Computed example of a mutant assay.
Amino acid sequence: MELVSPAPSATPKIPFNRLEPLGRELEYVVQAISEREVGPASRFVRACEDWLTCHYKAAGVLLVPSATAALEMIAMLLDLGPGDEVIMPSFTFVSTANAMVLRGARPCFVDVLPGTMNIDPEAVAAAITPRTKAILPVHYAGVGCELERLGELARANDLVLVEDAAQAIGASRGGRRVGSAGALAALSFHETKNVGCGEGGALIVNDPAYLERAHMLRDKGTNRKAFLGGSADKYTWVDIGSSFSVSGLTAAFLLGQLEKLDELTARRRAIHARYMAAFQDLEDRGAVRLPRVEPLCDHNAHIFFMFLRSTEERERLIAYLASLRIQAVFHYVPLHTAPFARAHLEAPPSLPVTEDLAHRLLRLPLYNAMTNDEVDRVIHAVHGFFEG
């Protein structure tokens, strides 16, 4: 009897990302509902904040609706305004720049390093002006930036170092948690991140001088925390702010994810290592270029990416994988080339590394529940493209 291959539609799809419960997430959500712990004062919100504060050895951590919200709070805490500049990579999500623009500040875009796509410290040094107020590195793919050099630049020029650590939970550099070096840092718990709750984030406050005001900003500009703690006799409006709080339901799911951080990080690193080993032959013959991770970095395998030889080849590979029901994607359009930047921001100098590599970068599926069989399917498919 002749064997017939299954129709493509019968082949299970391998998504780019999938958020699934890994531990007690659903149990905690049920508890939050049954105990009426669903609001922003929920014990699950406090539990997540306590867990993160301990993890980062921070002065405090505030759970917020997103990393975008955390970045907006950072801009408020730094009192940014018109004329101020914040140095950041152009190769990042729009939220990194938008948070500063909303306060009237100007993003000063600089180039990245070709191996990691992290901000180039020497490009930062060259971009510092009397208007510079802060340095804002983005830890791309969960690989820590060169925080030692960036910290030196910040101290030497009386600038604030803040971190966009949206992708970096579970990562460290030189034995120090990524997200603990800057005065302030932003985390993301979006569904695409290593630890997720659908949509969520956190503001890490490492410099205690910012902590009291951070609570005011989150509580709509009120002194709610001081009032509830007994150090203020009236609950009133004292500062700018917004509704940057989260529900207990969100926090309940997140807590179950946080408790599994070490386990899920180990699994992601194993998948990342498997990809690296499997595609080394493609790099050896010049078909692709693989990412670089310094020995100093203990990355969290948030993303596995590779560089193709051209934009056209990248698009063909994405389409080929899609035909095999494997979802691969590109990443950011450099912000300095985006319509808003062209219309409203002073054009930066040429950023050759960003402009070249952003258009050749491809990301492969990598998620916590990904099976070895799914990893092998992706590896086989990528090899099939180049062999074909």
Results as ranks from 00 to 15, higher is better:
R177T: 08
D79Q: 14
L258W: 01
L153P: 02
S245H: 14
D373M: 11
D373W: 08
Q31W: 10
Y367L: 06
V94F: 09
I128W: 14
L345Y: 04
L136T: 04
Q167N: 04
L345V: 03
G151D: 10
L324T: 06
H215T: 00
H380C: 12
D281M: 00
L102D: 04
Y320D: 15
G198I: 02
E212V: 09
H336N: 07
F91K: 01
T236H: 07
V195E: 02
A75D: 09
I87Q: 04
L153E: 08
L345P: 00
G39I: 07
P295A: 06
G174F: 13
P21S: 04
L203N: 03
P65W: 03
V29H: 01
D298M: 00
D207W: 10
S231V: 13
I169W: 05
N206H: 09
L264G: 01
R316Y: 00
R177W: 06
T116P: 02
S310V: 00
K234E: 14
F227Q: 09
K220M: 15
P295W: 03
T129V: 06
F253I: 00
A232F: 13
S9P: 03
A154W: 08
I271E: 10
Y332K: 00
R325Y: 03
F93H: 15
L258G: 02
L335P: 06
V333F: 13
V293G: 03
S242F: 09
A154P: 08
E387G: 11
V382D: 08
A67S: 14
F305M: 01
L52G: 10
G388K: 15
V246C: 14
A369Y: 04
V353L: 03
L366I: 12
R224G: 03
L184E: 10
I14K: 01
P365F: 02
I135P: 03
L22H: 12
V238E: 06
L3R: 14
E191C: 14
L211M: 05
H383V: 08
E85F: 02
R131D: 15
E313I: 00
I379R: 12
C197Q: 12
D233F: 14
A185L: 01
R36M: 12
A59R: 02
I318N: 01
G151A: 13
A251Y: 03
A67N: 14
E72N: 09
G384M: 09
V94S: 06
